[in-house]
Design a binder for these strands. Structure first.
Lengths: 228, 228
DNA sequence: CGGTGCGTTGAATACGCTCAATGCGGGTGG
DNA sequence: CCACCCGCATTGAGCGTATTCAACGCACCG
C-alpha cells in the first residue's frame, strides 16, 4: 500500500523478529525493481538505505509516480490485503530494504472473508481509485470527462440501470470540482464531446452514443488531441 | 473512508442488524451535511436513496470533491480507524441513509494499539495524502513544487536532518512524474522560485531560503499568481 | 413581472506543453 | 590525456488548451 512516511517507531512494534535473530537485508541496484505491479507480495519492506519510488505505468507509456520512499519508510502494506500489489517499486539509487514479518493477527485477519478483510479491501480499492484519478488529473479535459462518464455508466450498470442513458445526479459545479476543472470548461467539454457525436447532452440527461469512441478518447495518449 | 462503489452484497454481510429489527433511516435534505471534516463518526452509512458527495475544503475556499455516493454505496469506513473523519459529506439532493452497525471484530480491532489498527491508520493516512495531492494537481506549478519542497523538508526534519538544506534523491524526470509536470516545466519552476529568492538551486542540492515565503506560495489562492 | 440560480457561450489572456538547441559532467576508448 | 558520447538538466520559441471575466439564455418562484 505504500505507506507514506511511516516512521520506524510504529513499525518496529509490529515487526516480528524472525526466530534466530536478524534477517539479512536485501540490496537493490539503481533501476532495479523491488516488486512489480500485479505481483503478490507476502510481506512488507522497510527501507534501510537509499531511495525507491512506487509508481504506475499506463497504457500510453505515461508514468505516475505515487511516492518516494526514504530510509524509515515502509513499502507494501498492500501485502496485508490478499490482493496483488497495485503498483511497482523501483530503486532510484543503490538501496537496501529489510523484509518485515507480518504480525500474526493480520495473517488471520487478511485471509478468508472476515469483516476486517472487507474493510481493508475497501480501503485498498479507494487508494487505487485515487491513484488513477491523480494521473487523470494531468490529462486533457475530454479524456477526464469521457473517463468519468464511462465509469459512471458502469456503476449504473452495476445498479441494474441503463448503461447508455445517464441522469447525472450532481450539478455542474460539483462535477467540475470532482474533475478539477472550471465549470465553464466542463460545459465546453460536454458540448465538444457532443459535437464529436460521442454523446448527447440535455442538461442532466446524457446519452452515450458511441461507447467505443469514448473509450478511445478516455485512454488516448496526450498528443492525439490535435487531430480534428 | 468513502468506500467507492462498494456494493450492497459485501456490506450486508458485515452489517449486524440491531437487536429487535430495522433501524430507521435518516433523511437528509439537499445541501444538508451528514458529517463534517474532523468529526468522529462511530459508524458507517449505507446510502439508501438520493445522492451525496464527500469533499474537502481548502484554506483558499477551493473545494475538492472526492466522490459521489449513490444508493448502495457505503460512506464513512473512516469510522473503523479511531481517527476523526478527514472529509465532509453532504447531500446533493433529498437523500436517505442507514446507519451501519460496525461488526464486533473491528470494534476490538480498531481500538488500542493493535497491529491491525496501525495498518488501518497507515492506509488512512495514505488516502488523506492522495486526496490532498489530487487537489494540488489542479494548482499552478509554483504551488506544487513549493508544497513538495516543504513536505520533503519536513520529512527530512523527522529523520533528524536539516530542514533548510535538502538533497533531492530523485531525478528531475521522476519528480516531474510525481508532480504531474513536464520535466522542462519543472526545471523552469525551479529557476522561477530561485529568481524570487525563495530557494537556491544547485542541481540536486536545494536550500530553502524563505520558508514562510514558500508556505505563502504553496497555499496561495489561484488568482494570486499574477502579482509580480 | 422581475428576481435568482444555473448552465452555456464568447473573447482575451495566461499557463504549461512540445520540440529543438545548448550546457555540463562522467564515462569510455583511442 | 584528450576526444567523444551519453544522460540529464536547462533554456528558448511557438503553440494549444484551460482559465478568467463577461454576457446571455432559461427555468423556477415569489
Amino acid at each position: 500500500m505504500t505507506t507514506h512516511h511511516s516512521d520506524l517507531r510504529s513499525m518496529r512494534s509490529t515487526a516480528r523478529p524472525t526466530a534466530g535473530g536478524e534477517r539479512s537485508d536485501r540490496v537493490l541496484q539503481r533501476d532495479e525493481h523491488l516488486f512489480h505491479e500485479g505481483s503478490r507480495l507476502g510481506q512488507a519492506y522497510l527501507v534501510v538505505a537509499g531511495v525507491l519510488k512506487t509508481y504506475l505505468l499506463y497504457e500510453n507509456g505515461e508514468e505516475q509516480v505515487l511516492d518516494f520512499h526514504l530510509p524509515g519508510d515502509v513499502i507494501g502494506l498492500d501485502a496485508l490485503t490478499d490482493e496483488p500489489s497495485y503498483c511497482s517499486a523501483m530503486a532510484l539509487d543503490t538501496s537496501s530494504v529489510r523484509e518485515l514479518e507480518l504480525p500474526d493477527p493480520e495473517a488471520a485477519l487478511v485471509s478468508g472473508g472476515t469483516d476486517a478483510a472487507l474493510v481493508l479491501a475497501g480501503m485498498h480499492r479507494a487508494i487505487r481509485r485515487l491513484s488513477r484519478r491523480l494521473h487523470m488529473a494531468s490529462t486533457c479535459t475530454d479524456q477526464r470527462l469521457a473517463g468519468f462518464l464511462l465509469e459512471f455508466a458502469e456503476s449504473q450498470g452495476r445498479r441494474g440501470c441503463s448503461q447508455r442513458q445517464l441522469r447525472l445526479p450532481m450539478r455542474r459545479r460539483d462535477l467540475a470540482c470532482y474533475l478539477g476543472l472550471a465549470t465553464e470548461t466542463l460545459s465546453r467539454t460536454f458540448t465538444r464531446l457532443q459535437q464529436q457525436g460521442l454523446i448527447e447532452v440535455d442538461n442532466y440527461d446524457i446519452v452515450l452514443l458511441d461507447q467505443r469512441g469514448l473509450q478511445r478518447v478516455a485512454s488516448a495518449s496526450p498528443c492525439q488531441t490535435r487531430h480534428h
